[in-house]
Design a protein around this nucleic acid. Sequence first.
DNA 1: ACTTAACCGAGACGGTACGTCGCGTCTTTTT
DNA 2: AAAAAGACGCGACGTACCGTCTCGGTTAAGT
Lengths: 205, 205, 205, 205
Amino acid sequence: MAPSAAPTRSAGRQRDGRTDAALIDAVLDLVGRGATLSGISFVAIAEHAGVSRNSLYRRWKTKDALYLDVLASLNRPLPALAGTSVLDDVAELLAVIIERSVDPRASQMLRALNAEASKFPQLHRRYFEEVVAPRRAVLIDLLERGVERGDIVNDVDVDFAASVLVAPILTSVAFNMTQDLDPKVTSRQIADLVFAGLAPRPTVD
Amino acid sequence: MAPSAAPTRSAGRQRDGRTDAALIDAVLDLVGRGATLSGISFVAIAEHAGVSRNSLYRRWKTKDALYLDVLASLNRPLPALAGTSVLDDVAELLAVIIERSVDPRASQMLRALNAEASKFPQLHRRYFEEVVAPRRAVLIDLLERGVERGDIVNDVDVDFAASVLVAPILTSVAFNMTQDLDPKVTSRQIADLVFAGLAPRPTVD
Amino acid sequence: MAPSAAPTRSAGRQRDGRTDAALIDAVLDLVGRGATLSGISFVAIAEHAGVSRNSLYRRWKTKDALYLDVLASLNRPLPALAGTSVLDDVAELLAVIIERSVDPRASQMLRALNAEASKFPQLHRRYFEEVVAPRRAVLIDLLERGVERGDIVNDVDVDFAASVLVAPILTSVAFNMTQDLDPKVTSRQIADLVFAGLAPRPTVD
Amino acid sequence: MAPSAAPTRSAGRQRDGRTDAALIDAVLDLVGRGATLSGISFVAIAEHAGVSRNSLYRRWKTKDALYLDVLASLNRPLPALAGTSVLDDVAELLAVIIERSVDPRASQMLRALNAEASKFPQLHRRYFEEVVAPRRAVLIDLLERGVERGDIVNDVDVDFAASVLVAPILTSVAFNMTQDLDPKVTSRQIADLVFAGLAPRPTVD
DNA sequence: ACTTAACCGAGACGGTACGTCGCGTCTTTTT
DNA sequence: AAAAAGACGCGACGTACCGTCTCGGTTAAGT
């Protein structure tokens, strides 16, 4: 969030809260249109938000500080899962991830961050810590419970398995091919394939 | 390759072939250092290559034309596979892909392209056609032969399976986390997991 | 003079009289430091006076209005002359003029006005009417009485003679060379020279 | 003059000499219109000259450097004097000084320099050294020869007398009242008055 | 050997975008 | 109502960079 509102309101005109929102939104808009993090200028942001440069610079001195708040605005908590079966829960979680990843502004933000990780190392790290890691944590937890229940083989590297499950989604997002993703269909497709495996299973009958 | 060599060689001083190479190398260097495709300027490229702007503009009029030749310089044919078993071949192919994806200049070029796909649509397409597609083709071919041989279940969507197999690698590359990749280890890890599946298999005994 | 005190004193807090003085003083200070009339801003004046911009704008809406009051604050009536002889009186008057012209704030104000006469025509005129003209009037009156008494040749252009007498002083002031001026010495030097003339006089013996 | 043309012409495109002239002329024009030395911006100069800011900054890094060349462009050598009599020569010299001082661009430049002497001390000094001093030197030389010949009383402070002679002109210029000056009339008026003196002379008869 | 035409580096030039700064106005709280 | 504090829009400024251009010099093919 923007500068924390001081409890003791000082004298002078108050900042217009809508300006903060408009500016953050402008950044997301520009990024969504294919702009680069380092390519976006304060001038462009202010103009796009319909705000004076002055008001922008007063709030954030550096791009890093601004982008940090932009990232924070993208973060939303995950919904609870049904909890019927591990397979279903995984599929459901993947569906949620897909839903959010499809948002063109968020996905382009991701690509921009990946491309300029060396210029914005702090941002790159924060993105993982605040957006990616929570999702991973939920998924890993899910898988571990699956192992306990016996629904998942116990010699598997849960951490790695989580990566494999999410990878197809992240790849589509990272390569700007989100049109291939469908929340319901793709999520189940992935879950089914990774759970069943490619190698044929001996028929029990 | 550089500008097509004119068949009718006219009089006058000849172009220095080393200049072409130096320029293309300069682009890769700048990209490798985290520069953006649209952020790189002809001026910067010429300076980095130690060449006059004149010599650069004489060769390529537009960035697209230049970057196209840069991309072409990254393309190398795939080596032949051992052909012992489908599982081994897949692992081996993944190992080759990892090896090449680890090159920091190529991987950063990929991230840059993904981030600016909307600004360089032609380049983005070409990259897939000339670099990604050939790899996929080999992998798909491999899987189809596996299905024919009975090493892979026949109700699987081969195309989708290929995506899942490559996804972990591409994700690491796209997210600038190639340090997690090891040609030998990771390739086998992926192949093993995807072939076996997460769900426990009934013991044959 | 400061804003006309409203006869009908309305309700509310009263204006602080010291603020008016501080603001006018701030202008003189800034001018004295070499600032230009058009270069000085309301903001700078308020800051220099340690007063809020609000309080300044409330008193004067335009620079001309403000500067007019600043000029008025510089005006002081001339002291009476001894009246012994015309030569002595002229020398004494010149001494007074020098004394006042040496004040760095007033002299710099003069230079500023001369430099920007075209931008502040009203001010430029007022300065002559209220500061220069009175001095000239006294001097001309003095010379005319000298002519009547026979102490000054009667074919002289009194107006022009006055100009010649004051010119060395004004020149020093206008050219920022007031260090060359000494009230007592310079005044007598001028008067002596202009009264005696350069051409040799026939010895009466 | 602008940067001294190096004898060994270096590589690259040559500078357009007309640009130098246009820029210096633009400064004089702006000053002539009442602009202040510190109030003029490089932007305004370049625009007024119809030249890109780039070309201006390339030639002069600081205002001082630029104004120095502007001043130099104002300097012209004095013509020779008739040499008939000291009185006539003085009048003639004063006439020349008036002629040159009437030029609105030069006179406004003088007022601007006087007003901002503290900000441009070097310029202020240079103006005296290169424009004022030469004139004074000629005048003083003239007066000294007058003393030798016996046309001027020998107990006079020649240096001070020169100041008194020029003062009326400089005052008119400094106070923006050049309309009072007429090369022929005023010059003789000053010379006559200062030579004859105000005090009546004993009739020789 | 001489001509000629393209290559090459250096640098001038116009244009433009950017970040900063300052100004004058407006808004809010306090006195 | 005065006063201080500070947000806000507007605009100008100096800088930096970009792509084009115009030079002088170099180099290699063709006469």
